[in-house]
Design a protein around this nucleic acid. Structure first.
Lengths: 342, 342
DNA sequence: GTGAAAGCGCTAACAG
DNA sequence: CTGTTAGCGCTTTCAC
């Protein structure tokens, strides 16, 4: 029941016959309150439906209990693929568990960026920031560093700077896929790369190379062709790989792999008999391709959860070494690689 | 340059040789400040990189400049289709334009819901809420009504309550599609419905009926078959419609239409020669189906923009009649309906 | 254990 | 036009 006068700590204290300080202690779960007093206060809170005033709390405690999520302008794929929704799901889940609110900051143009970034850094707005990172190094990062705001990137940055980030193990993910193909007897494995100005693109390529090196196989540069994550680039790249005599294709992403499948189909090559194909992402559609696509599944939701928890860690234990968390991937074996069972 | 002592209005005032009030006036763009004083203050702000403390502002002004977006548990499709990302894009765009932050509240279980909803209603956290609405009427709504918090639904609620909402014109959207088919000479037009416990499902069905009624055509109930937005339900429903002798199919969604196309292909019926097909949504993939899908495009981003602006209106002009905004749709004519040009 | 008192940094009358 | 003053509702010493 809402009373006439707006509810404050003072008011709750009055109703419970204690001071505002005591009510504050109860609300913040501090130990030094007599159980019977605590119960009395709790009951009044219950009956009145009192909720502390978030802004007042933030001001007094110098902590907002809000974390931000910045989606940079370059993250075009926000609308295209299911990555962001899943990531956000993980983040909101973790935020709920920690009683945090999540504020979304997204810019659509350079002009907005100039306007938004300084605002994001306002004191008393958020306690920390997660950056859904992009291909380029974000202009927000230097500002963040200067402003002392705790932050965590999702996705390894290109620079080697001591910056907190959470990422999936792109290197080992591809490496496992290639190992698998080698084990199945493929010896002319091609790789359709992602953009080589992005950590994702570089890391996945590195996984491809690592798998060859560890088996003592030489890396044939003609089997490594450029791409940009798109279906179309996969289609074109696959045609080059065909010409180069590839008997397997490891694509940088599932979409790229779809393009490769299409190219192979048009060229009349059987998958996996003539050419094995492996993707990366495990999109929903990848179970339904013809043939179903073997791919590397990345733990997107978990990435969101861990990003929030890492941020919390940074907020609570400032200083210390940079947190750099790498989450494992999983090889999902379907028909397109030529082995039903790994 | 950050100075030693943390920057406050007082400090800026001292540096500019004015009182804190004047600085506040400058920051809040109030008129009554001498231009030369304003410039002096602005310069100090610029030089120091001062940003007002958001929480302090919120507390004093009793306004947070944050709006919330609640994504209810029932919104499974958050991860599945591109609807939410687009909606969110529109909302963040509008929020940026109005210098608002957008807080995302999303629950994944009933337990979280109980925990989250009261927190969302805390005073001093957000100024208003947008609810990405769902099939069911959300349990949040009664709480909201009681709490005086301004809110706007995205998607018409089932109840006729005087509640603010923004929606696309589902009725007229489908109505136009059916009109178009009638004009093309189709006389046994089938409809694959959405869930009939949702406003979307009901409204689209109503559009189908309206188009018949206005042309004096009788509605054959055997041509109206149930579905649930899914591809699979479209597949099965189309088989029933085939048996019922339909020469056209208006599906409740593009995904449903994909299922229908698949069923027709398997049944050896030509689209559009034997059966015309129309969807609703205009997903990206709909331009690439075989044949390309005629569909009703809904202005998703605009919905997000308008939702924010409507909320702002409600916040600034409380009371008054409920705001109920209906946004127009657009018929996108491709091959599947049998007429390249409308 | 509990209360009193002093802010957190800002806005908004009210005077002048 | 500008400064003074009184809060906004909470946390947090510091006494008791």
């Amino acid at each position: 029941m809402a009373s006439m006068t707006s509810l404050t700590l003072e008011e709750i204290g009055r109703l419970a016959g204690v001071s505002r300080s005591t009510v504050s202690r109860v609300i913040n779960n501090q130990e030094n309150v007599r159980p019977e007093v605590r119960d009395r206060v709790l009951r009044v809170i219950q009956e009145t439906g009192y909720r502390p005033h978030a802004a007042a709390r933030s001001l007094a405690a110098q902590r907002t209990n809000v974390v931000g999520l910045a989606v940079p302008r370059s993250a075009q794929s926000f609308f295209a693929d299911p990555y962001y929704p899943r990531l956000i799901q993980g983040m909101t889940q973790a935020c709920n568990a920690h009683h945090l609110a999540l504020s979304l900051f997204m810019c659509h143009s350079e002009k907005e960026e100039e306007d938004l970034y300084p605002r994001v850094l306002s004191r008393g707005l958020i306690d920390g920031l997660i950056i859904a990172s992009s291909v380029k190094n974000d202009p927000l990062i230097p500002l963040l560093l200067e402003s002392q705001m705790p932050f965590v990137l999702v996705g390894r940055p290109l620079s080697q700077a001591p910056i907190n980030y959470v990422d999936v193990d792109n290197v080992v993910g591809v490496q496992n896929a290639v190992r698998h193909l080698i084990r199945l007897g493929r010896r002319r494995i091609g790789h359709i790369m992602g953009p080589q100005n992005s950590a994702v693109g570089l890391d996945r390529r590195q996984g491809y190379i690592n798998a060859h090196v560890e088996r003592g196989l030489t890396v044939d540069e003609s089997l490594i062709v450029p791409g940009d994550f798109s279906e179309m680039s996969g289609y074109q790249a696959a045609q080059h790989l065909l010409a180069a005599g590839a008997d397997a294709i490891v694509a940088v992403s599932d979409k790229t792999a779809y393009g490769a499948l299409r190219a192979l189909r048009e060229a009349g090559r059987a998958v996996p008999e003539d050419v094995a194909v492996v993707g990366f992402d495990d999109l929903e559609a990848s179970a339904l391709t013809e043939p179903p696509l073997t791919t590397v599944r990345q733990p997107i939701r978990a990435t969101g959860v861990v990003a929030v928890e890492t941020l919390l860690d940074v907020m609570e234990n400032p200083g210390g070494p940079p947190r750099q968390v790498i989450l494992p991937t999983q090889l999902i074996v379907r028909e397109s690689c030529g082995a039903r069972f790994p």
